[in-house]
């Protein structure tokens, strides 16, 4: 069995990164199951109650390479529909008053409680996914592989050195614990079947609640979802020149209905908030187009933009890494070039 921890957003929709992790699990199910050392078993005791039992397509639950979901908190109808389209056979719904506030230890234990004794447990390579899988791995006495991008019969392949190299490894335990790197695959939908949903009588240990979340303050500048989900991202680097030099790039991002992403130099200088940072220690993006303005292309930045389908560079230096790695480039001052691009877009719009 391959158990995937799925994250939902505030409106109960399945996060894009979780959809990627589910597709990764479904398309690699056979080889993941082969890599797990022994035959997967159903969890001890089994589910407490079955809220809904499907038409029971043969072997939908408990099948060796079936993809099952662990979801903590509210399970919306929308999420059930999304999960069924992503090929999920079974949803393990983990809800308990003590799990309403996030606590990594308690959430990880709840997931582990319904995990198979052998097989694979995975999550997307988000901060939550990393944290939960690490707690779960320690509790299960297993290793954990972070940011896996591929798997074959030789083992797992995962990002190291900020995505500039890959590590080939095997986790020779009973339970293979891993996270799937962002954009390792694109979500794929299948012919939906109604998933079985299991609810549980969970027991939460007091000790696992000692780091529970106290409160959340919503600030617009913290939100990176616009950046990671934008079809077009305009990148800005040191070449912008100053804190007040972002007018043209912001206007271009607006014309494209996209987002601004910046290099680490820009956030380090305090010109823009960290939530806009793209790269190894910021967001990793995979837009249809990334327009890098005045960004030289440090390897840590390139790690965050490798997923872009089309890469466009605007730079004064033709020899810059970003220009060499781009599909298209304009050599020139970014303020002049981006200003002219904005004028041209407005002119064509009429």
């Amino acid at each position: 069995m391959i158990l995937v921890y799925v994250e939902t957003d505030v409106s109960g929709q399945v996060q894009l990164t979780s959809a990627e992790a589910l597709t990764f699990a479904r398309t690699n199910a056979e080889v993941l199951t082969q890599l797990a050392t022994s035959t997967p078993q159903l969890p001890d005791g089994g589910p407490a109650t079955s809220r809904h039992v499907a038409e029971a397509p043969s072997g939908s639950s408990g099948r060796d390479d079936g993809v099952e979901v662990a979801l903590v908190g509210e399970l919306t109808e929308d999420a059930v529909g999304q999960l069924s389209r992503l090929g999920v056979s079974t949803i393990h719904h983990l809800e308990h008053p003590d799990l309403q506030s996030y606590s990594a230890a308690a959430w990880a234990q709840a997931i582990l409680d319904i995990a198979p004794e052998s097989g694979t447990v995975s999550a997307s390579g988000t901060p939550r996914g990393m944290e939960l899988m690490a707690h779960l791995a320690v509790r299960a006495g297993e290793r954990m592989a972070a940011n896996v991008v591929a798997v074959d019969d030789e083992g797992l392949l995962r990002q190291v050195h900020g995505g500039t190299a890959f590590e080939r490894l095997r986790l020779d335990g009973d339970l293979q614990v891993l996270t799937v790197a962002g954009h390792a695959c694109s979500p794929e939908e299948v012919t939906p079947t109604t998933p079985e949903i299991f609810d549980y009588e969970l027991e939460i240990a007091e000790a696992d609640l000692r780091t529970a979340l106290v409160r959340t303050e919503v600030e617009a500048t913290d939100d990176t979802s616009g950046l990671t989900q934008a079809r077009a991202v305009v990148g800005a680097g040191r070449g912008v020149g100053s804190e007040t030099g972002f007018g043209e790039v912001l206007e271009l991002a607006d014309h494209l209905g996209g987002a601004l992403g910046v290099s680490r130099v820009v956030t380090g200088l305090g010109w823009r908030p960290h939530s806009e940072q793209v790269g190894q220690t910021g967001s990793r993006i995979a837009p249809d187009v990334y327009i890098a303005c005045g960004i030289s292309g440090a390897i840590q930045h390139m790690a965050g933009v490798d997923g872009a389908k089309t890469l466009i560079a605007i730079n004064t230096d033709e020899e810059a890494t970003m220009v060499q790695r781009a599909d298209y480039a304009i050599i020139g001052d970014l303020h002049e070039v981006v200003g002219a691009v904005n004028e041209e877009i407005v002119r064509r719009r009429g």
Partner: peptide, 13 residues
């Protein structure tokens, strides 16, 4: 390379 400077803007658009 689409060109040099602002003159290359139409090619980028």
């Amino acid at each position: 390379i689409l060109g040099d400077g602002p003159d290359a803007a139409p090619a980028l658009v």
